[in-house]
Design a protein around this nucleic acid. Structure first.
Lengths: 226, 226
DNA sequence: ACTAATTTACTGTGATCACAGATATTGACC
DNA sequence: GGTCAATATCTGTGATCACAGTAAATTAGT
């Protein structure tokens, strides 16, 4: 008889997967900037692994259009292309609106409680200027809604778009104070969901994204004039 | 002085890319069925290459959710999961509707001519029962519209969804005759675009997809009763 | 000191190998 | 004949190597 061998291989999840997830998350929270180079060997060195799993991770990210890859040049985060970024935010607005419409009737009261708690903490994050916390809570806020849409493909598509826009958006968020009228936006979204007003909730979600676009645009215009 | 060396390396496009494109296209046109196994070594043997480029291609396809990959089991086309497929078609309807709305004002008369020509040939394909031709022309018809949306991210997302639903849909198309009322649908879509009626065009596109869903459902119900 | 050619360093790509987990096959035993 | 264990086969995974492009640094020539 063979014992289950509890912790023979702790992982069971491939190294390439973990590297992929780690890099994707870094993109989402804006740890990489437009134009950043990510070569296989340099990342492998940083991760302390061989090139192989990094190579798979970067291949995957490039295939999902989260990184650019030229013929024999280093992988890199896409440079800022206004048209392309506008297309991405347009898609985000549509998909996240759709996800919200689907999600509202599905969310349980306790889930909405967590949403409001997050919204409160996010307001406090803005006041205290802790942008790092805000970014993570903002992710959790939005994606707990999108998860409630119970459409995995939709969820995945939106997450992919966040990873694409992350390098542009977060940089803008970090370098800018937030307009007052937007501070209570997430609280209002939670309220709309609690009252089961799906249309309003979706509308506010899209407004949130349009805020992202506007800060992004002000950021790029100030960058152009440097 | 160095001559340009015209055809030193004809390719300049990596092997892994070509294999990836080839497999993706095979998925779109329904050459693989749900549950089909695609192991690295077997595909490499078939392609006449080493395992390396195939490995990258399959990794990419799995990362885009076009293939399933378990821990140390073979890559495979996803089995039929009604909920999941329904989610995919729902997304297709939304995204392809959006793309059509964007595309209609952008399409040139000559592009619309080509659309009508395709629609005519597709009607003939149905009459002569040449499903292979129909499938390819259907792809060209739809994606020349989506290309006119001039939103690359949207185009890519839709193409990805086609690769996901291809194994389910095409199998249904192949094994079934088409209802009369749908034969002239693509011609009507072209007409709507020519008259710049974006709303109608989008509506008809979504109707086309809902036809796909219905044939898919009739196919699965007949498969369940086997 | 400046330009052009050469060299060096760095990049992804394809191939090959060793290994361990998972499945299917075979075998032995009752 | 049926059940369970041993074995053989097939799977993805990680590592390493050689190679050919690309870009940066250096050197040579004026």
């Amino acid at each position: 008889m063979k014992a289950p061998q509890a912790n023979k291989n702790v992982t069971q999840v491939p190294l390439s997967d973990r590297i992929y997830q780690s890099l994707k998350w870094s993109l989402i929270i804006g740890e990489y900037f437009p134009g950043s180079d990510l070569s296989i060997r340099s990342v492998a060195m940083k991760m302390g692994t061989s090139t192989m799993p990094v190579r798979e991770a970067l291949t995957r990210l490039a295939s999902e259009r989260l990184l650019q890859s030229s013929v024999k040049r280093s992988y890199k985060v896409a440079e800022l292309d206004p048209k392309r970024v506008a297309d991405q935010f347009f898609l985000r607005a549509r998909l996240e609106g759709i996800a919200t419409l689907l999600a509202v009737p599905n969310m349980t009261p306790s889930q909405i409680d967590e949403l409001e708690a997050l919204a409160n903490m996010m307001e406090r994050d803005i006041e205290t200027g802790s942008n790092e916390n805000y970014i993570v809570r903002n992710y959790n806020f939005h994606f707990s809604i999108y998860a409630a849409s119970q459409n995995e493909e939709l969820f995945w598509s939106i997450e992919r778009l966040w990873a694409q826009t992350g390098p542009f958006l977060t940089q803008a968020v970090r370098s800018q104070t937030m307009p007052d009228e937007w501070r209570i936006l997430h609280t209002n979204i939670a309220k709309a969901i609690r009252s089961r007003n799906a249309e309003l909730a979706a509308q506010l979600i899209e407004k949130d994204i349009s805020w992202g676009v506007s800060t992004f645009e002000s950021f790029t215009s100030s960058a152009q004039s440097k």
